[in-house]
Design a protein around this nucleic acid. Structure first.
Lengths: 126, 126
DNA sequence: CCGTATCCTCCATGATACTG
DNA sequence: CAGTATCATGGAGGATACGG
């Protein structure tokens, strides 16, 4: 799917655009921070600072950047409460929840194959 | 799962290590090239140069690097045929095939929400 | 054909500071 | 508290060359 190359045939225009878009989406979302954010927001709505605290090792900048990207793609909804200090909450949209099914599957996969992977790595490194 | 922080309690040792490992695996594999490679190898065994040709935009170096990583994790099996010139084939292991189920689900997701995403992006950019 | 090593570039990312 | 902008840099990744 995502690897289709441009053929030049006019009737391919839509398919090619769709594939190019799919590839772009794929490239943006198949990223650890995005996955971690989605995994956390699946449980409950979280504030910016809560996300920041829960995701070990993420910088302010990366969190903002990924949240914007997810919001732009319509996977996350951002709500600003005009209080002082401001309160900003992030929650998953329906599309985001659907993606969470995938992410969740990947978490399961990771745990299921943890032992296999560890064994394999030790063998490889030897 | 992958976001658990170290609590310091001794009885958490294994869980903490498992989570740290899970997080590491997650970070390595949630990467566009790895996903694309797995998607392609799901169909059939491929040679290095075939992968190189099928994955638009990947460099020799990135392909090698990702194949090594996947091999190290036991997701891909590498077979060298000692001919001249050498022939090297890559195929998915059982663990790799299991992961492909996830990747495949993500491809489906992408196509299902393509329109939603495009609409959302246009709205956001305006 | 495939793999590794080297060099070099540049961009992603972190750190910092300022605003509302 | 949350967002944006700026600056500096390390390291990811590309290009290239050589070896098996």
């Amino acid at each position: 799917m995502v690897t289709k190359q441009y053929s030049g045939a006019p009737e391919d225009a839509d398919l090619t655009r769709a594939d190019s878009l799919a590839r772009e989406i794929f490239s943006d979302i198949a990223n650890k921070w995005a996955f971690l954010i989605i995994e956390l927001l699946a449980d409950r709505t979280l504030r910016f600072s809560e996300l920041r605290n829960e995701i070990e090792g993420i910088s302010h900048k990366m969190l903002t950047q990924n949240l914007r990207m997810l919001e732009r793609y319509g996977l996350v909804e951002r709500t600003v409460y005009p209080t002082v200090p401001p309160r900003v909450e992030y929650t998953l949209t329906a599309a985001g929840q659907a993606l969470h099914e995938i992410v969740s599957g990947m978490c399961d996969w990771t745990h299921r194959y943890l032992a296999h992977i560890e064994t394999s790595r030790q063998a490889f490194d030897a």
